[in-house]
Nucleic acid binder design. Structure first.
Lengths: 219, 219
DNA sequence: ACAAGTATGTTGAATTTTCAACAAAAGGAG
DNA sequence: CTCCTTTTGTTGAAAATTCAACATACTTGT
């Protein structure tokens, strides 16, 4: 377990928790590590939410697919980030999303029961854990607001520019990489892929942006 | 303050907290009550998030307006419900949304500083408060997922039907009222109002639904 | 009861998006 | 290197959304 400490230290769930305490805590929480191949479904839509996940290596996507096969990408998850915490905390009987391995990855799973109901020997860090979880959920809620700010735009062009502007801001400069290929970006922005490609071409011709693959530059 | 206890008891923030403890707690939190007229801006976009709000009477809307004046309604808030908690918990320096009074309303405000940093005399219920807040944020996150499930649909018709189906499920029957007028529903679904009206007419003619004003029936 | 203002429904034109199909480019496996 | 697969760009036609304008119904305040 120790080999993951570098990642876990950066996980918001364990903020302000010392290494010395972490190991005992993980035991107390019944944390386990699992590995998944690329494209493997880590959590399937429709199944009950029982675990909080933490990505240790690789990456995963939160996706929603409707009966027509339209995929909507809700977010992308990287090492030391948490997923499915909202569903686990609310103990929902049926996940409204799936979590898919983007590439081979390792994930730490912690059962929500262990988090929600203080353990008998009540490790003193449980309160801190709840607090951290609260902080994390607040951050996630804000992320959703940002996503809505993007997808509420009515045109492909505006959605794309809003998204790219946010990414530039986040990267602290006009050059940055995005974590999506074209189809994924379309599924994130909720637009048609070919229309998105066309729009990118247009913006390029207008001299508004440069891009090669997933590297963008706003001009 | 006592006259609001009926409402506050139902507020998820005070779940499992006894009436006897509530009064002291509210004092400890520095809770204050304010009144707002219809259409008044309770919290303005761009201002720092300092307070959690609880609606005591009337109702409010969370809205986002872009530079073209396109309004997007994020949610509707009724008595005993909390708002702005995510921004307060994350102490964001600039609110990405506004909160507008839908009708004359009373609101309880609790400063986030009081919630996040345990008070010196450390009332024993603070831990429970954090836990409740965590639960509430999990629920809100799930609400956002539902909203995305609606708005990620590509056509007005599908958005509308997805929304109405969810409302019917929530109401536990095929007849139900929605909390929006046509323009608000359009702003919630992120579609054009006239197109929405046209779609409703079409669904009526096809015998799929009945409606008068904001009362709907799925057939 | 009336007038003024607001909300809703309806329409056609303009614009966009979606869809389908294909070509070109890039990436991976052997 | 070559073949095969996947990704990306391009296009035109079909479908849908948006927009503007207006008629009608409904509310509200006086």
């Amino acid at each position: 377990m120790k080999k993951y400490f570098g990642i876990l230290r950066k996980c918001p769930l364990f903020d302000s928790i010392e290494d010395d305490d972490l190991l005992g805590m993980l035991g107390c929480l019944g944390a386990k590590v699992e590995s998944f191949d690329k494209k493997y479904t880590i959590f399937a839509e429709g199944t009950p939410a029982r675990y909080i996940g933490i990505v240790l290596s690789g990456s995963a996507q939160i996706v929603q697919v409707d009966y027509y096969g339209n995929r909507s990408i809700l977010s992308e998850i990287y090492p030391s980030e948490i997923f499915a915490e909202a569903f686990a905390c609310a103990e929902v009987p049926s996940l409204p999303v799936s979590v898919i391995a983007n590439e081979p990855c390792e994930v730490m799973l912690i059962s929500c029961a262990h988090i929600l109901h203080t353990c008998a020997n009540s490790c003193g860090f449980h309160q801190r854990l709840i607090f951290n979880l609260m902080k994390d959920l607040a951050t996630k809620t804000i992320m959703f607001h940002q996503r809505i700010e993007i997808t509420s735009k009515r045109s492909t062009r505006e959605k794309l520019l809003t998204y790219l502007t946010m990414q530039a801001k986040k990267a602290g400069g006009d050059r940055f990489d995005i974590p999506f290929d074209r189809q994924e970006l379309a599924d994130y922005l909720e637009v048609d892929r070919s229309g998105l490609s066309a729009e990118i071409s247009k913006l390029r011709k207008e001299g508004i942006l440069e891009c090669q693959k997933n590297h963008f530059e706003l001009l």
